[in-house]
Design a protein around this nucleic acid. Structure first.
Length: 873
RNA sequence: GGGCGCAUAGCUCAGCUGGAAGAGCACCUGCCUUACAAGCAGGGGGUCGUAGGUUCAAGUCCUGCUGCGCCCA
């Protein structure tokens, strides 16, 4: 016999079993609908974190659910080469051995990264498997696979030919540490305490000067103008004059531009087109020169005179000192402002002018906006559409070149002779313009997100017209976090619509972020991470999965703590022990024949099961994972275990002996199937042991179907009466500290014939669940008893010796107060003319009946109290 | 500065289309009742952030305010 404590050690065994059986691969049923998902590819070098666990669990629930519903299901897994992240990691590794990537050279370095990928790239895959995710591993993809790289090239070349990719000298976000350009999205803005320096720029004519305010004085070596707002009365007369740039002693013009905020500082700002994105635009409008004062390593150039070669931040402090000593600094103020940081290495971003490749996004965004507007792609929850639209309407061109070595090399060759570009899918031998063989490939690689943008099509085989592509594109669902709606979702929409002429996915389920129990983001530095692998080790993957699912309410972040996972392990344990009970009673018997007659409890539980199935399906169809999970939890624990199993004990040796066991197995088996998408392992483990299983695995069994014919309203309402009476008896037992070991005698007083007949018919259940050994129906009060009234009947419990009158009066007075409150509420309502007139008739009737009922109870309670008080005297 | 979201029991949160507030954990009491002490039974606890409005009826719809998050610039 199994141990009373569930232990999840069987998990890996079942995963191997499923994989070996090929269940993760789609069926080939021509009549069935297709359901496909592509996994958001984790970084090859990454380690599984709780976010992956949530993301994967939710997808797996849908995938397993649909599979059991009979769909042809395909879930494509894969990993992302993660340009900067991976390169940084390998660089760091090499650095620890004292090697710089430049020492190796590009080719050798890239080789090293591939080695790294071979070595560690599978780690995350293995970790994902441990969670039970049923991806089709025979279709595992990597963004730098040969075929996927071909797709990348094709897309680049076609977009280039359509004029949607261009090269431009532009100010971009530059990470001096990673030594590469970053897209706007890859910059994280953080509020920082900084200083605002007020520096005087004297007029060229020697008559005073203007004071400019800047947070970055070191960029002054790149200043080519100072600017004021054209509407600023204070500075009307100085526009067109010249000022002298301090230290450099170079005259620069005063210009007027709407961009200048009159409220900021003095209303005069310095314009440094090469080192500030806004100034860059101003410079373009006013034809200003680009003077580069800081180089790509964040060091000062020779424009900075004696500061040449110095780091920009060191230069700042030294320069401020010099300016101060020379009297140029008029004031220094504290100033909070947003500073950009590299999303990978957190280094402060340096705006930098350079030649980069860009994707013209506007023409691509329009169809992507349309597709969501007309519902071809639906966001769940729908609010996220707003976020998507907001960004799409204000989309900027996408800088796609990165000065890295790891990634898809840009397929552009520049001719050293004619200077023109050859852009080609195949490596060209000669320049397509002049035929020269003196051509050189662009050094840069593409933004990682460029290849991810193609993920749904490229993993299915595009540009080849594969069977998979035909069958599974558009995919059915994408499950991802809100943090990559712009990075990824939006770009997949653009690329998918452009190249496939159809959306990449029908639905986008946006899930929450997993935070710690205090709502803090989990991070290694804070030390508040919950490691999914540790948790799985300790509690099992099922407990983690169920916890994530039951917490995954739409639109709210998940605050996770180990307690919660432990709490759900108890649920696993409950299921485990329910199985033990069933096994104990059914072992060695066969259950091939349907029972002819069911006991009342069985009819009831089947009705409840049917309703639960309906609830679960409704919830899952709306992606309400928490509702689905709690519906089954509630049913399994509080109806099946708390009531049905207890009631089943009554029938073990009576005429229903076979039928009750049959139904126990039947309902339990259905519970396991209902739960399988959430907790695949324990459900398989137990299902395999059931004598009534059909098929070789629960994974490919049919999902429970709602059966209208199982609904038994009349019986359910009778059972409500029974449960109500059981509760009342238990309550009295508890109030009088009667231990379970002591069976009792009760009188149930009711004049209602219906209730009387229920009492007769369901007597056994009351005996068993309320631990009663003698139940008498009466229409008269019984002496020497404590009483508890319910809507249906009054329970009289004989007490040995004397009744503690005071305690009893106290208890009942409390009850009386409640009933009084209730009466008042209902009376108010029913005395309200407007309510009687305007509220629905049924509601009014309902309230009338309620009032009648409460009044009856109130009078009863009152009577008992008075009687008790009389006794006291 | 623009946008989004949240405020319900001590804690973490459910509450769909408006008809007298729910769960899990924690707490209190009693129990090893033959599936389960990782359990069973019972119990206490909320004027649903605040001020208005719509309505016969508001946690639920609308507006202002306060507090707290997040995203974008």
């Amino acid at each position: 016999m199994e141990d009373t404590k569930y232990s999840p050690e069987f998990e890996t065994k079942w995963y191997e079993f499923w994989e070996k059986k090929g269940y993760f691969q789609p069926k080939d049923d021509q009549n069935a609908e297709n359901f496909s998902i592509v996994i958001p590819p984790p970084n090859v070098t990454g380690a599984l974190h709780i976010g992956h666990a949530l993301n994967g669990t939710l997808q797996d629930i849908m995938v397993r659910y649909k599979r059991m519903k009979g769909y042809n299901v395909l879930w494509v897994p894969g990993t992302d080469h993660a340009g900067i992240a991976t390169q940084n990691m390998v660089e760091k590794d090499l650095a620890s051995k004292g090697i710089k990537k430049e020492d190796l050279g590009r080719e050798k370095f890239v080789e090293k990264v591939w080695e790294w990928k071979e070595k560690y790239g599978n780690r995350i895959v293995e970790q994902i498997k441990r969670l039970g995710l049923s991806c089709d591993w025979s279709r595992l993809r990597f963004t730098m696979d040969e075929k996927l790289s071909k797709a990348v090239r094709k897309v680049f070349v076609e977009l280039y030919k359509e004029g949607l990719i261009y090269k431009d000298k532009y100010i971009i976000n530059w990470c001096p540490r990673c030594h590469t350009a970053l897209s706007d999205l890859e910059v994280e803005h953080k509020e920082e305490e900084g200083k605002l320096y007020y520096i005087e720029y004297p007029f060229e004519d020697g008559n005073g000067g203007v004071i400019v305010a800047t947070t970055r004085p070191e960029t002054m070596f790149g200043d080519t103008a100072v600017a004021v707002n054209p509407n600023d009365e204070r500075y009307k007369d100085i526009v067109g004059k010249k000022v002298i740039l301090p230290i450099k002693n170079k005259p620069i013009p005063v210009i007027a531009d709407e961009y200048v905020d009159m409220e900021f500082g003095t209303g005069v700002v310095k314009i440094t087109p090469a080192h500030d994105p806004n100034d860059f635009e101003v410079g373009r409008r006013h034809n200003l020169n680009l003077v580069v004062a800081i180089d790509d390593y964040g060091r000062m150039t020779n424009e900075a005179l004696h500061y040449k070669g110095m780091d920009r931040l060191e230069c700042r402090s030294k320069l401020v000192a010099e300016l101060e000593s020379k009297g140029f600094i008029k004031n220094v103020a504290q100033h909070r402002h947003a500073v950009g940081h590299c999303y990978r290495c957190k280094t402060t971003i340096e705006p930098y002018v350079s030649e980069q490749w860009f994707v013209r996004t506007k023409p691509l965004a329009e169809p992507a906006i349309e597709a969501v507007k007309d519902g071809r792609t639906r966001f769940i929850p729908q609010n996220w559409e707003k976020t998507y639209f907001e960004w799409m309407y204000n989309i900027k061109d996408w800088c796609i070149s990165r000065q890295l070595w790891w990634g898809h090399r840009i397929p552009v060759w520049k001719c050293e002779d004619c200077g023109k570009y050859t852009v080609s899918e195949e490596d060209p031998a000669v320049c397509e313009h002049c035929g020269s063989n003196n051509i050189k490939q662009d050094e840069d690689v593409l933004d990682t997100w460029f290849s991810s943008a193609l993920w749904p099509m490229s993993t299915l085989g595009w540009p080849e017209q594969t069977e998979d592509l035909k069958r599974f594109y558009p995919t059915s669902l994408l499950v991802t976090g809100f943090d990559i709606i712009f990075f990824w979702v939006a770009r997949m929409m653009m690329m998918g619509l452009h190249f496939m002429k159809d959306v990449p996915f029908r639905g986008v389920y946006i899930h929450a972020l997993v935070r710690d129990q205090y709502g803090q983001k989990m991070s290694k530095t804070k030390g508040n991470v919950i490691d999914p692998l540790e948790v799985v080790e300790k509690y099992g993957a099922d407990s983690l999965r169920f916890t994530l699912a039951i917490l995954a309410a739409q639109g709210r972040d998940i605050k996770l703590s180990e307690d919660k996972i432990e709490g759900n392990r108890r649920f696993m344990n409950k299921i485990w022990n329910a199985y033990r009970y069933i096994k104990l009673n059914t072992e060695g018997q066969t259950f091939d024949e349907k029972p002819k007659k069911l006991s009342q409890a069985s009819v009831w539980i089947k009705s409840r099961l049917a309703k639960t199935i309906r609830k679960v399906e409704d919830a899952l169809n709306q992606y309400k994972f928490n509702e689905a999970a709690s519906a089954i939890y509630q049913f399994t624990w509080h109806e099946f275990c708390d009531y049905y199993i207890e009631m089943s004990k009554v029938h073990m040796d009576d005429e229903f002996s076979y039928s009750i066991k049959y139904t126990l197995l039947e309902v339990f088996e259905a519970i396991l199937r209902l739960l399988h998408p959430f907790i695949p392992f324990i459900t398989e483990e137990l299902w395999q042991k059931l004598p009534n299983k059909k098929g070789e695995s629960i994974m490919i069994a049919e999902y429970p179907k709602f059966k209208e014919s199982d609904i038994a309203e009349e019986l359910e309402s009778a059972m409500d009466t029974v449960i109500d009476i059981i509760r009342a008896i238990r309550n009295l037992r508890s109030e009088y500290n009667i231990p379970p070991s002591k069976r009792i005698k009760v009188f149930v007083k009711t004049e209602d014939e219906k209730v009387q007949s229920i009492l007769v018919n369901f007597k056994n259940y009351i005996h068993a669940l309320a631990l009663v050994d003698e139940l008498s129906i009466t229409t008269k009060p019984v002496d020497g008893c404590v009483v508890q009234s319910t809507v249906y009947a009054d329970i009289y419990l004989p007490v040995e010796g004397n009744i503690d009158v005071e305690k009893e009066v106290e208890r009942l007075t409390k009850l009386l107060k409640k009933q009084e409150k209730s009466m008042n509420f209902l009376n108010n309502k029913l005395n309200n003319e407007a309510f009687l007139e305007k509220a629905p008739k049924e509601l009014v009737e309902e309230k009338r009946a309620e009032l009648e009922e409460v009044t009856r109870l109130y009078n009863k309670t009152k009577g008992i109290i008075e009687q008790l008080k009389g006794l006291k005297r």
